[in-house]
């Protein structure tokens, strides 16, 4: 089983890398298409360029979906092999994070028919997978504190969705900053990007609340303390508060655009800090 999981992992990396290339071709194709049609006022050539560019995009999506399926398989095989959800070490959690980013991204792509975010989110997912290859991937037995399957599985599953959503919001924010004067032809309008960021936070914010709460519940059962200002739980609370600040600034003070995008980038930095925190600090979560 763990061998199958590794094969599926390799397949994921291959499919994802190819998907990224195709997304790139798609975006660049869109650019040359726009440039061409501007110069030429639209012609037969334009239409065929158009075709090539959407074809690349379509295959890109198919490959991204495949990568997602392989990654799912890899996680499932690993779960079967280890007998517990992917939460025992950094390797498993990196895969899970990448899975979340892909899942949320594909959901948004299908829902809003917008491929451009993939240009940022897919490489981030690939980065996580590459990072996973640098940490020990042995199946480790669970220390007593982690032997609470149901609670932990839900805790981690929800965290994955939240992190995925925040990754998406980050992608939208970065593209927004590139596009803020609507000067880049091959990117969607800045208002669209701004709003994508907001929508992603709408998905992620309640999930992150649940992550913090389930973490507290688990700590209460395992240690008798629902909150001990452990670095990891504190970092996740702060991450949540930053996105809370983003929502309030937006709804109550009308923050849009650049300032709002900066908050999303700060939030994603906090997300990464929460995630990689184990590397910087000790604490109760330091088994990762």
């Amino acid at each position: 089983m763990s061998e199958l999981s590794e094969y599926a992992f390799v397949a994921t990396v291959a499919a994802l890398s190819t998907a990224i290339l195709l997304y790139l071709v798609n975006a660049l194709g869109a650019r040359s298409l726009r440039a061409f049609s501007l110069a030429d006022g639209g012609s037969l050539a334009t239409r065929s360029a158009n075709g090539a560019y959407t074809t690349a995009g379509r295959y890109g999506t198919i490959l991204a979906v495949n990568a997602f399926a392989f990654l799912t398989a890899s996680l499932v095989f690993r779960t079967i092999a280890s007998g517990h959800g992917p939460f025992a070490n950094m390797y498993e959690f990196s895969l899970a994070f990448a899975w979340g980013a892909l899942a949320l991204y594909l959901y948004f792509e299908l829902r809003y028919r917008l491929r451009i975010l993939g240009l940022l989110v897919l490489p981030i997912a690939l980065g996580l997978l590459v990072y996973a290859t640098t940490v020990p991937s042995d199946i480790t037995p669970l220390v007593p504190a982690l032997q609470n399957d149901l609670l932990l599985t839900v805790h981690v599953a929800v965290a994955i969705i939240a992190y995925g959503a925040f990754t998406l919001a980050f992608g939208a924010a970065v593209l927004y900053l590139i596009q803020r004067r609507d000067s880049v032809r091959w990117l969607p309008r800045s208002t669209v990007l701004d709003e994508m960021g907001y929508k992603a936070v709408m998905v992620g914010f309640p999930m992150m609340a649940l992550v913090v709460i389930l973490g507290a519940l688990w700590a209460d059962i395992a240690w008798g303390t629902y909150w001990s200002w452990d670095p990891k739980e504190t970092a996740s609370l702060v991450t949540w508060l930053i996105y809370g600040g983003y929502l309030h600034a937006r709804v109550l003070r009308g923050w849009r655009g650049q300032r709002s995008a900066m908050l999303l980038i700060l939030g994603f930095a906090a997300t990464l800090f929460t995630y990689f925190g184990n590397l910087f600090f000790g604490g109760l979560h330091s088994y990762g």
Binding site: W229, T234, L237, V238, I242, G244, L252, R253, F280, F281
Partner: peptide, 23 residues
Amino acid sequence: VRMALVLILILTAAVLAGTLLDQ
């Protein structure tokens, strides 16, 4: 809301210090 944002930012800084410094 500005006050809320400032408070949240101070909390963030405090918490960052609290995680990076030994407590």
